[in-house]
Write a protein that binds this DNA or RNA. Structure first.
Length: 436
DNA sequence: TCTGGGGTCCTAGGACCC
DNA sequence: TCTGGGGTCCTAGGACCC
């Protein structure tokens, strides 16, 4: 048995909003999230029939009609088969607002530095220092927070509690989500009855198909077997991921939430699956420019410059050839200028594209540094550079005040441009109004 | 099956340097 | 010549998460 004496023994809450988007929609329509039968469907205008995406489904819709998240609209039951299933458009801005409201509630129970927002609907709270202020047992405190959120916002949450973040996450994913009580507490010493009994490797956070298949090849079919495999073998097969897999099988995780982890590399990206196949270089380049300028505006808004420009092009599956696309990057002199960023993207595109039919385009700007000093270049006078900066900044300002479409490049009006259609989207989905 | 979007981490292998 | 070795940086691609 593992000696857990020197592992952290904290009280970590992992709280997840049950069917978050679908619940926000149910409440918006004056319904109860647990009894409403609805799904949130995102559809791009001008895309082919049946191409909609189910972003979220309410618990009843999942149970009654077998809906799953990120399901294609064409797989939905028909109107006759599911007469009471309601399909609604996403309202991304509303979800963002609700998410912040949930965060406000968490801040009543713990210091901001002890809260880690993991995603729009999941947060981790280190309650070690504060749980006893709210009850006699962490379990009861968890229920109290759940009740608070339900009474204040109408949202239902599931809560995993653990002695470290990993145990809390597993308690939530594996157990709390499926219990009527919607809460569970996992301790190190329970590993044989909890972690080792997880039925499928892919149920575990961090293990997906590929890793599971690799483990299966080694004769490891469950967490018990993983925990009883020599760590050296795992290290040889998986590198540092192997070390991590072994630690996970014993519930070991030494990260501390208040010690903010600073990611080595941060980047901003936008990508889109095009509504149809693009074959013409000019049309493809319009979209590359649009996406490039969109990401460039984002880094400017954060006061950053990029030193690594990355272009991803995905080919249409119908396109012949073995390449399914390409993904290339180039180091550049740090810049936040539309012109320079787009020029580099187009150069990358022209160098690597050989006429294939394109269906997906993505731009990622990385190697970010604060946009403070002016980098001199050989090609432009400082005055010209300052002028370009001013121009980009002015456009950014007008757009933030009057909306993206208040100022649009003429090229975006040409066939192929997608920026205008997508101007009101948030994360590629309908933004709606936060106050609807 | 055919096409959602945003993000991070890890690794292998090549280039280059001493 | 049947030729050293280590370190670092960089790119492409894989894997996973929500």
């Amino acid at each position: 048995m593992y000696d857990y004496r020197y592992e952290p023994h904290r009280i970590i809450f992992m709280i997840d909003n049950k069917s978050f988007y679908a619940s926000c929609e149910a409440l918006r329509l004056g319904k109860n999230p647990m009894t409403a039968c609805l799904a949130v469907m995102s559809r791009q205008p001008h895309s082919s029939f049946g191409s909609g995406l189910i972003m979220a489904a309410s618990p009843v819709a999942k149970r009654k009609y077998g809906l799953v998240n990120v399901m294609r609209a064409r797989n939905l039951p028909s109107k006759q088969e599911a007469p009471d299933l309601e399909l609604v458009q996403p309202h991304m801005n509303l979800y963002i607002k609700r998410s912040l409201e949930v965060l406000n509630i968490f801040e009543k129970y713990a210091a901001r530095e002890d809260i880690h927002v993991y995603s729009i609907d999941e947060s981790m709270i280190d309650m070690t220092k504060s749980w006893h202020l709210f009850g006699d047992d962490p379990y009861l405190v968890g229920r109290k927070i759940q009740k608070d959120i339900r009474q204040t916002l109408g949202l239902y949450t599931t809560c995993g509690i653990g002695e470290n973040p990993l145990l809390a996450k597993l308690a939530m994913d594996i157990s709390a989500k499926h219990r009527r009580s919607m809460i569970d507490f996992w301790h190190y010493i329970d590993a044989p009855d909890t972690i080792w009994r997880i039925p499928k490797l892919t149920d575990v956070w961090g293990i997906n198909k590929r890793t599971a298949a690799h483990l299966e090849r080694l004769g490891i079919h469950n967490m018990y077997q993983l925990a009883h495999t020599h760590p050296q073998i795992l290290h040889k097969e998986f590198g540092v991921i192997g070390d991590q897999l072994f630690a996970m099988s014993w519930g070991v995780d030494r990260s501390i939430i208040s010690q903010r982890y600073v990611p080595k590399s941060k980047s901003y990206s936008n990508s889109q699956v095009l509504g149809r196949d693009y074959r013409n270089a000019g049309e493809i380049e319009i979209v590359i420019r649009e996406i490039g300028e969109q990401v460039a505006a984002r880094i400017r808004a954060h006061g950053l410059r990029t030193s690594r420009v990355h272009l991803f092009i995905g080919f249409s599956l119908r396109a012949a050839g073995s390449r399914h696309g390409f993904s290339v990057q180039a180091k550049v002199t740090p810049t936040s200028l539309n012109n320079e960023i787009v020029a580099e993207l187009l150069a990358l595109f022209r160098r690597h594209w050989h006429g294939e039919t394109v269906r997906e385009i993505g731009v990622d700007l990385g190697g970010l540094t604060p946009d403070v000093s002016q980098q001199l270049t050989l090609f432009l006078s400082p005055q010209q550079q300052i002028k370009l900066r001013k121009f980009d900044q002015t456009v950014d300002q007008v757009r933030s005040q009057y909306g993206f479409t208040s100022l649009v490049k003429a090229s975006s009006l040409l066939p192929g441009g997608t920026a205008i259609q997508r101007a009101n989207l948030v994360g590629g989905h309908n933004g709606g109004n936060a106050y609807e």
